[in-house]
Write a protein that binds this DNA or RNA. Structure first.
Lengths: 113, 113
DNA sequence: TAGAAATATAAGAATATTTGAATATATTTA
DNA sequence: TAAATATATTCAAATATTCTTATATTTCTA
């Protein structure tokens, strides 16, 4: 699989409200499943399922501490990605100059061959 | 809807191989649907469907040029996101110090209450 | 060593996404 | 105005995702 396709798989894995929430917390430090039950309002099996999916895609991993599983971030893209998602863009990209949206008329240099 | 949830919707919209490919091309400039038929190996109706989804989530927009629809990027996160996906991270995040994966033993300061 | 605690796994139902096929619409040109 | 071109829409089938419920596994502790 090409590198970019791996990254798309990762995007899909991350693009879920519960999983983003988990990753946000993990950027702050190691958490075990019962820690997560405190801030997620979903069932324990469902948490486990999300964790196992994230681990499957290499986003996180865990170490065992007695009967706890301590999860932590593994893929270094995660903090950067979360920061990007939180970033406040002030304005949309400008529509291509001289070509207002929905106005008819040619866009010089962009005509079809 | 909270801002971060909007962003997650956007992530989901973007996390598809065809749609990423479209966005990559749009970072280079305006493209109409028949331009896209040249580099995507899917049917025209399917291209239209992906475009309409991206537009629905505010990722792209178009202007009309005769019988062409000229699509362009609208959400300013897109170029940054694509750059992030292409970024080559040299190594995984370190596992939390003093706690190798799967090794038993407490992680000082991270014990449950 | 039995029971409790922490977590995982499995199975199934509900829902969402993706695609293909057929068809519709708008614009230009003959 | 009819035909051709560019693109969109609709619907259904296939597939994938998500969540719930029930149960299993591992480890700790009394």
């Amino acid at each position: 699989m090409r590198a970019i396709e791996k990254r798309i798989e990762l995007l899909k894995a991350v693009a879920h409200p519960v999983r983003i929430r988990i990753l946000e917390e993990l950027t702050k430090g190691v958490k075990c499943v019962s820690d997560m039950e405190e801030f997620l309002e979903i069932s324990q099996p469902n948490i486990s399922q999300h964790l196992s999916l994230l681990r499957h895609y290499g986003v996180i991993d865990y170490y065992v501490d007695g009967r706890l599983r301590c999860y932590f971030l593994k893929d270094p893209i995660v903090p950067d990605l979360i920061e990007l998602l939180r970033k406040d863009y002030l304005k949309e990209l400008p529509a291509p100059a001289c070509c207002p949206v929905t106005k008819k008329g040619r866009y010089p240099g962009e005509r079809r061959r």
